[in-house]
């Protein structure tokens, strides 16, 4: 990707919700990242780390009353934050599409799958009913839905979870978006179906040239799918970089902790998987310094100041970490990949 301008460039995205008495609770704080055309970026973090809010902010879908979104998100040079509704609507579904975690509740129960996909196509393209339906059937068949014509006539509850998610992806892809935001697309599915859906997402890049922002809390999914990875903790970027580098040499103790909690495939089976002690701080009570410090085994005085993102790892590969350890000359040990 290198020199050419990225498809989406997010700078200092901050989302704050009013917390009463004129105060604000910052859900997401100063998140910056970029996605190149056709790239798959993984956004990892625990529940409440701000992953979904980040995605919804990009789509202009945060409708919490009084929410304040600052920073910048440029899609092909166009500023998304504060974009007027009409233009945002033209982008949504056409340029930037989104798929959601639970395909059961994410599709309107009273309309057929086909009707809902037709609806999106006809919202953005001048196509006849029959033309839209033909495209719908073709998309469903591309997504590996057996007997797509009949499936188009079925209601969401009549399909299995895997088929519903395929239909959801077909719908998201119906207008050939350049960017697909997938919010935990596999969490509600069983493992075999999960693998098929991830395979499908990887194929999108080849067949449709779409970039994907994959939101997940599953490091396994990231390792399998993403070119680059960004780890969010308590609304801030803890670490980001190429997936391979991040997995081989995690620079943030939080990333390392996440990786440690994946059951190893080789070697002796641990009696208990290591876990990160404690729980992430409530957004209203985040510490002034490093938000991870209360749970961190390496916490010391220097952590009282919020660390900036600094480059680490191999020069030029873009790995960056919000931790003082590498600059103090005592980085975390590399893991055996």
């Amino acid at each position: 990707m290198g020199s050419e301008a990225p498809l989406l460039e997010v700078r200092d995205l901050t989302i704050a919700l009013p917390a009463g008495r004129g105060g604000w609770t910052r859900i997401v704080e100063g998140v910056s990242f970029s996605i190149g055309a056709g790239e798959i970026l993984g956004l990892v973090g625990e529940s409440g780390s701000g992953k979904s809010m980040t995605a919804l902010a990009l789509m202009g879908l945060i409708d919490a009353p009084g929410a304040r979104i600052t920073g910048s998100a440029r899609y092909r040079g166009q500023e998304l934050i504060g974009l007027d509704r009409r233009r945002m609507r033209a982008l949504r579904g056409a340029e930037i599409a989104m798929i959601f975690q639970d395909p059961m509740t994410a599709m309107t129960p009273v309309h057929t799958i086909g009707w809902q996909i037709d609806e999106q196509i006809r919202a953005h393209r001048r196509l006849s009913r029959a033309g839209a339906r033909a495209r719908t059937v073709q998309l469903l068949s591309e997504m590996g839905v057996p007997d797509p014509e009949r499936a188009a006539g079925r209601y969401p509850h009549q399909l299995s979870g895997g088929l519903r998610q395929r239909a959801m992806i077909a719908m998201a892809l119906s207008c050939d978006p350049s960017l697909l935001i997938a919010d935990e697309p596999t969490t509600a599915l069983d493992v075999t179906v999960q693998a098929q859906i991830l395979d499908l997402l990887r194929r999108l890049r080849r067949d449709h040239g779409s970039a994907v922002l994959l939101i997940t809390h599953d490091m396994g999914v990231v390792a399998e799918t993403c070119d680059r990875t960004m780890v969010l903790y308590a609304g801030t970027v803890a670490e980001r970089g190429p997936t391979a580098a991040l997995f081989a040499r995690p620079a943030h103790p939080y990333t390392a902790g996440l990786l440690d909690s994946i059951p190893p495939l080789r070697g002796a089976r641990p009696a208990r998987l290591p876990q990160i002690a404690g729980a992430p701080p409530n957004p209203a009570e985040r510490p002034d310094g490093c938000p991870f410090q209360p749970r961190c085994a390496f916490g010391h005085d220097a952590c009282g100041v919020r660390p900036a993102l600094v480059a680490c790892g191999a020069p030029g590969d873009g790995q960056a970490v919000a931790c003082v350890l590498p600059s103090e000359g005592r980085p975390l040990p590399a893991r055996l990949a």
Partner: peptide
């Protein structure tokens, strides 16, 4: 109904607010 996932999906599809309200919200 505005809190339902499918309403968010309908908005994410780029439909107009009126259409989201009438074809997805009102219907359900």
């Amino acid at each position: 109904a505005y809190g339902e996932d499918f309403m968010r999906t309908a908005r994410a599809k780029g439909l107009s607010e009126t259409r989201v309200l009438l074809r997805h919200g009102l219907r359900t």
